[in-house]
């Protein structure tokens, strides 16, 4: 027997032979932990209640060891699922046509490519360009474009309401409004090519914004004077968080029309546009802060 083999054998004996762990303890009935419900006003601690007056951040949620309570995990997973579902959603084929809109598409061919190639999402494909040239009214004051952006859910949710309200606001001001249209796989800058093609003085794209936790229904609007390929972000004005629980579509439409009016009057947009005369009436389009997203309880377990 070698020395090493003796040592290994000795170790086996020292480490409990065929039972390297002690026998388990006898099982005792485990008391259920205190009920934790999130977010539930009357069961929250004083700290969470006080914090809630100032922030929508998830604070005062306690801990289990160093981890989350089950109810917090489920709420969080539901919020994540809502955001991911909004990103994954696509405008169904025929959605635009069914809603009486001219159906356009960018140069992107599928949803995966849409996420990876913003450059392709900024240009129309040839078919759409031909369709636009044949069917769209040209030489207009304002061209609204409804689009999916990063949330087709938002586009299908408040999109038509916002488009119709904005169109109405523009007409009431005596402006000519372009053919109603919706674009698929669209990025913000797509409004440049569309607006240039139809000869619009102002183009305004209304598109689903990048979802946040628990939200996927917000629309943003980006507006540009004299749309041309090559315009940059500094040439645009924007408004965000347009949906039923944020800035409501009717109110957003009025604010957008005020900004469009300023563009038509001053013949410019973006950083050069002076909004001081209307800044009290246009919300975050004046460069103000976005309202915090109100959290909703998403999970109710049990019957």
């Amino acid at each position: 027997m070698s020395l090493t083999r003796d040592m290994v054998e000795g170790l086996r004996i020292a480490l409990g032979e065929s039972r390297p762990l002690p026998e388990p303890l006898a099982a005792e009935t485990i008391e259920p932990p205190p009920k934790r419900v999130f977010p539930n006003q009357y069961q929250r601690g004083a700290y969470a209640a006080k914090a809630a007056a100032h922030t929508t951040a998830l604070v005062g949620i306690g801990n289990v060891g160093t981890r989350y309570a089950t109810n917090v995990v489920l709420q969080f997973q539901a919020e994540l699922a809502v955001a991911h579902a909004a990103v994954a959603a696509e405008l169904p084929d025929g959605w635009a046509t069914e809603n009486g809109l001219l159906s356009l598409k960018s140069r992107v061919t599928d949803h995966h490519e849409y996420l990876l190639r913003p450059d392709l999402g900024r240009r129309l494909d040839e078919e759409s360009l031909a369709l636009l040239r044949e069917n769209a009214t040209t030489g207009i004051d304002v061209q609204p474009i409804l689009a999916d952006g990063l949330s087709a859910v938002a586009c299908m949710g408040s999109g038509m309401e916002l488009l119709e309200a904005f169109t109405k606001e523009c007409r009431q001001r005596g402006w000519s409004v372009g053919t109603p249209m919706a674009a698929r796989y669209a990025r913000v800058w797509l409004e440049d090519e569309v607006g240039e093609t139809v000869g619009a003085r102002v183009a305004c794209i209304l598109l689903g914004e990048r979802p946040g936790l628990g939200t996927g229904d917000g629309l943003s609007a980006y507006m540009v004077y004299e749309p041309r390929i090559g315009k940059t972000d500094g040439d645009r004005n924007m408004m965000s968080n347009i949906h039923a629980r944020g800035t409501r579509p009717a109110q957003a439409a009025e604010r957008l029309a005020l900004v469009a009016g300023a563009m038509l009057e001053q013949r410019t947009s973006g950083v050069d546009l002076d909004l001081s005369g209307i800044q009290d009436r246009i919300g975050d389009a004046a460069g103000g802060l976005r309202e915090p997203q109100v959290r909703e309880q998403l999970v109710e377990s049990g019957p």
Binding site: K50, A51, H54, T55, A57, V59, L289, R290, P292, Q293
Partner: peptide, 12 residues
């Protein structure tokens, strides 16, 4: 905090 609410920042 989306509005720089100082009490909200301190709560977090």
């Amino acid at each position: 905090h989306p509005r720089d609410d100082v009490q909200g920042i301190l709560a977090s």
